[in-house]
């Protein structure tokens, strides 16, 4: 009896020390997480703070952290310096068609690779994977020349049209996901006389919302953030997207930090908001798509 009691207290002690250790661990983790969060978030606060400061507070040392008074004047100036609304609408058009095109073309190709058993699909898949490591820079010059022959320079077409012809990385992601959908589902549909198109559209697509959302979001971000593409293809200011407009703004008015920060905030905020609303889906998507390969 005594022995059992002894060992019981031992276990209890052990448990107590273990839970205390867990508590300390949790506290330490929180401290580290909060500290690092501040480090990662500070630049955003600095951005916002600068954009809301009266001009003379921007160039003071040591700096004023919280603007006093808070002023929105830089937003007005910044947005009026550049044809902001035209940049924005170009960017939105680019994003819309890039997302639309990528979703359609890439999911079709992924379906073909994952769900239809045709000779040569493995070769196509291998080529797609290989293409992923060909750097942009190799193809950009000939692509530029192709679009020049089409007369597409200085339009949004070189940026949007290729999206309708599949993007290897997204085909790859979608294929990986489509592979995980049980074969039986499409077999059953096929028994009922469904065509490949019916199976794709009515069986596979409805089951793939998370991965489609992920691909859509990634495409949106790529387009919203794209810099090299617009830099190479767009010349007239009336066709500029936000990213290149902001760069031009920075080039011309390189020390107007207030308006510069205001425009930067305006450009950053939509993606941050979009991300806040979709982050669960987003991160789920990354996990889902099994980047393990």
């Amino acid at each position: 009896m005594a022995k059992i009691a002894q060992s019981l207290t031992g276990v209890r002690q052990h448990q107590r020390s273990q839970s205390r250790r867990k508590l300390y661990g949790a506290i330490a983790a929180h401290i580290a997480l909060i500290g690092l969060s501040i480090v990662f978030f500070l630049p955003f606060l600095w951005l916002l703070s600068t954009s809301l400061k009266p001009e003379w507070q921007i160039f003071t040392f040591p700096p004023v952290w919280i603007p006093d008074p808070i002023t929105f004047e830089h937003y007005g100036t910044g947005i009026n310096f550049i044809p902001f609304w035209s940049y924005l609408s170009n960017t939105v058009i680019y994003c819309f068609f890039a997302v639309l095109g990528t979703l359609i073309s890439s999911s079709l190709a992924a379906y073909s690779l994952a769900r239809i058993n045709w000779p040569g699909r493995n070769i196509l898949f291998a080529i797609l994977v290989a293409v992923m490591i060909v750097p942009n820079q190799v193809t950009i010059i000939p692509q530029f020349l192709i679009f020049r022959t089409f007369g597409w320079i200085d339009t949004l077409l070189p940026l949007t049209v290729p999206a309708f012809f599949g993007a290897p990385f997204f085909i790859f992601l979608l294929r990986q996901f489509f592979m995980t959908i049980p074969k039986e589902l499409s077999e059953a549909a096929r028994m009922d006389g469904a065509s490949e198109w019916n199976i794709f559209w009515e069986v596979i697509i409805p089951l793939s919302h998370p991965v489609l959302a992920t691909v859509g979001l990634f495409t949106f971000l790529n387009a919203w953030n794209d810099f090299l593409g617009p830099l190479v293809y767009l010349n007239s200011q009336s066709n500029y997207t936000l990213s290149i407009g902001l760069q031009q703004f920075r080039g011309q008015y390189d020390s107007l930090w207030g308006p510069l920060m205001a425009v930067t905030t305006v450009m950053t905020l939509p993606v941050i908001v979009a991300f806040f609303f979709t982050q669960r889906l987003f991160i789920q998507g990354i996990t889902l798509t099994g980047i393990k390969g």
């Binding site: 359609i104 890439s106 073909s112 690779l113 058993n117 699909r121 293409v131 309708f164 599949g166 490949e196």
Partner: peptide, 13 residues
């Protein structure tokens, strides 16, 4: 059908 579905991507490539 495999080629048909993959046609845009093949053209793109």
């Amino acid at each position: 059908s495999g080629l048909l579905f993959a046609a845009p991507a093949i053209l793109g490539l």
